[in-house]
Design a protein around this nucleic acid. Structure first.
Lengths: 204, 204
DNA sequence: CCTATTAAATGAACATCGTTCATAAAATCG
DNA sequence: CGATTTTATGAACGATGTTCATTTAATAGG
């Protein structure tokens, strides 16, 4: 049983049936192996999930196209991480629940900090900005995929439930926000939030 | 068995032993009740967690002090949400894993959008900005509490592991970032990220 | 080629988990 | 007081992460 194959299979199982359905037993069955065998290669299920998170980030730190402004470089890198998390079902959840120190994760952060050092007044500011960007991406993607998970069957019910709770008398601002809140234009939401951060960076 | 008491007890159990230790059986035992009884009040464990998330946000939308600039109002509201999540062990995780539409959650978002409407050019921009701020807070607090969880025993090991992986040849920027990355000044990190967003808002 | 040593896979088991349900107790109310 | 509804019980079901003694396969040395 090869470790990289096991990780790839685990990601495939998550894509097919969601993260709660990823079970050590099911993974073992998909690999034609007994459950105990997995524990010779992964000390714990958390270790497996960390390896999956690391694998998801493959390619995210690849070379940036020439001639990009630093703003465009940040947008490109942020978009890559978002897409990497979106590429697999519950990907943001897997990523948020682990803390990989593998080469993909490290080189992504290294690249992002490198771009930010061109603009930020100090390495500390660049690092803190990188953290803020990643945290925004994780939070945003977590919610985007939560909406995707609901979309399967229960989104309409959730939306009418929300709409019923939105009394314009008690929540005047939410009434004005409802259209945007319930919108599925996550690309737009993401761009808006990221541009806020980038604009804030310009003042440094 | 009263529902609010059950939610409060569940939060207390999480504070004492962490979220993985919150079990329907353990909660039932703490309430001097059988397991099945819980399912008469909470259709599922997810329902319980949503009620806990809603409870955590109590007071977050309370009236803002007079005389605050909109910048200060945003800082105050964001700080309240962060503190609400930090107040309970694994609070960010509970919050991120649920989607409450209770009054605490709704009025918090309503208040935040309300403040942002003073500054943003449209209700849509205000709503998207509110989303971005909340997503940043969730991502940030998730990592802050992950560090807290590690701090119990395994933080030193994790840090030396990270340090060993940080070859300055392959990750030149991470080498410069290590001090900040491994810092525990989460207050500073949070303020930096939030100020970035607020500064970006000024350009609108 | 055979053997000794190491690595890997097996299969069964353990404690625990979320959830369900028929039954029994308790509370409510006409 | 008796009938009806609400709440609690206790036992069970299937499934989960994890462990471990044992067996099987692979590897290396003479």
């Amino acid at each position: 049983m090869a470790v990289p194959e096991a990780v790839a299979t685990a990601l495939r199982l998550v894509d097919e049936d969601g993260l709660d359905s990823l079970t050590m037993r099911r993974l073992a069955a998909a690999l034609d192996v007994q459950v105990g065998t997995l524990y010779r290669h992964f000390a714990t299920k958390q270790t497996l999930l960390a390896a999956m998170a690391e694998e998801m980030l493959a390619g995210c730190a690849g070379p940036l196209p020439d001639g990009l402004t630093w703003r465009e470089q940040i947008t490109e890198l942020a978009g890559r991480l978002r897409m990497a998390l979106l590429r697999h079902r519950d990907g943001a959840w897997v990523y948020a629940g682990t803390h990989s120190v593998g080469p993909n994760t490290l080189s992504y952060t290294d690249t992002l900090v490198g771009v930010l050092r061109e603009t930020c007044p100090s390495p500390e500011a660049a690092t803190r900005t990188a953290l803020a960007i990643v945290h925004f991406i994780v939070g945003h993607t977590l919610e985007e995929q939560a909406a995707q998970a609901l979309a399967e069957t229960e989104l309409p019910a959730a939306l009418t439930l929300l709409h019923a709770a939105l009394d314009p008398g008690t929540y005047p601002n939410l009434a004005a926000a409802e259209a945007t809140l319930t919108s599925t234009d996550f690309v737009g939401h993401f761009a808006h939030g990221l541009n806020l951060i980038i604009k804030g960076l310009a003042g440094e």
